[in-house]
């Protein structure tokens, strides 16, 4: 069963999960905050796709671009309105705020649009497959892989070659020291949220590309995947997030194939057993960061 089609499908899933995990970890790295409203950014991206493809004549590529922008703006707005006021208080306050933002956004979608699933019109290329070595491979899977490679390259470039990137990395290593050296905290944190929002927006296109529908509760499964992937890969390292995303996809796909039929319904349970085993041997995840300073104030 492990043929080319399966490998491409798993790689595509891994790419999607890697982008998901990156968006979550970039905020965690700096604020030590697991943003539980992250899934809702994907949901917002999805509803933007639904509204703009369904009710405007805009070309699809432009709509996709707008979805990413709207996700990013939502992410920035939540930081400004919800997280910034409580940032100096405590980590717990921020964590609870993130739950509140998540509930708020979910219910907003529910009230404004509908609790029922809405269909998103997809571009033609999302309905097409290409014949590779005798099997039909959906274009969407290939596009997912290509997009994630592009985004990884872009992000690496940003982090390694720009002042903002250096500030972001420095802040992730030791936020207090970075601030003392004159880097404005608000700018760094806002940038992290913006990047997180962009990742969520891009993920929303491909996540919804698979089901062609969006619901208010769409954000929960990707949030869980992102969270587990970062725990596997290492919460403090961007490389870890990528590795975690791929490891998650590979383990879950292999479990799906090799578990006997009677045990298939416990696939997630086996998955979490693997996570526990990984954490027993590598409590900080597969990739350790050089420094591991707790967040201060």
């Amino acid at each position: 069963m492990i043929n080319l089609e399966f490998i491409i499908n798993t790689l595509s899933l891994g790419s999607l999960y890697a982008m998901l995990a990156l968006g979550l970890v970039i905020v965690y790295g700096i604020l030590r905050l697991v943003n539980f409203a992250y899934g809702e950014l994907i949901m917002i991206g999805g509803y933007t796709l639904y509204l703009l493809t369904g009710f405007t004549p805009l070309p699809w590529l432009f709509v996709a671009f707008l979805a990413v922008i709207v996700s990013m703006l939502t992410s920035l707005a939540t930081e400004l309105v919800a997280f910034r006021p409580v940032r100096e208080k405590s980590l717990t306050a921020m964590l609870i705020t993130s739950f509140a933002v998540s509930t708020l956004l979910q219910n907003a979608a529910l009230l404004i649009i509908s609790p029922r699933a809405r269909a998103v019109t997809l571009p033609q290329i999302f309905q097409k497959s290409v014949l590779i070595a005798g099997t039909d491979v959906p274009w969407r899977n290939i596009l997912t892989i290509l997009t994630s490679i592009f985004m990884l390259a872009l992000l690496t470039l940003l982090l390694k070659r720009t002042v903002l990137g250096i500030a972001l990395r420095a802040a992730a290593d030791n936020f207090r020291m970075t601030r003392m050296l004159g880097v404005p905290a608000n700018t760094v944190i806002s940038s992290a949220f913006a990047i997180s929002g962009i990742m969520a927006g891009i993920v929303s296109i491909f996540w919804i590309g698979r089901s062609a529908s969006v619901t208010p509760t769409l954000g929960a499964p990707p949030l869980l995947v992102a969270f587990v992937a970062t725990v596997i890969g290492g919460m403090r390292s961007l490389t870890g997030a990528v590795v975690g995303g791929f490891v998650y996809a590979i383990i879950i796909s292999l479990l799906g194939i090799f578990l006997p039929p009677d045990l298939l319904e416990f696939r997630e349970a086996f998955m979490f057993v693997f996570v526990i085993i990984i954490l027993l041997f590598r409590p900080e995840g597969l990739i350790r960061s050089k420094t591991s300073v707790e967040r201060v104030g």
Binding site: N9, L13, S253
Partner: peptide, 22 residues
């Protein structure tokens, strides 16, 4: 032929698909 399982929220059908294709 086969009784396959899926769990709502898993949001991925590729492993099941591989089994069908095989």
């Amino acid at each position: 032929v086969f009784e396959e399982k899926y769990t709502q929220g898993a949001a991925d059908f590729s492993a099941q698909l591989a089994r069908i294709k095989a």
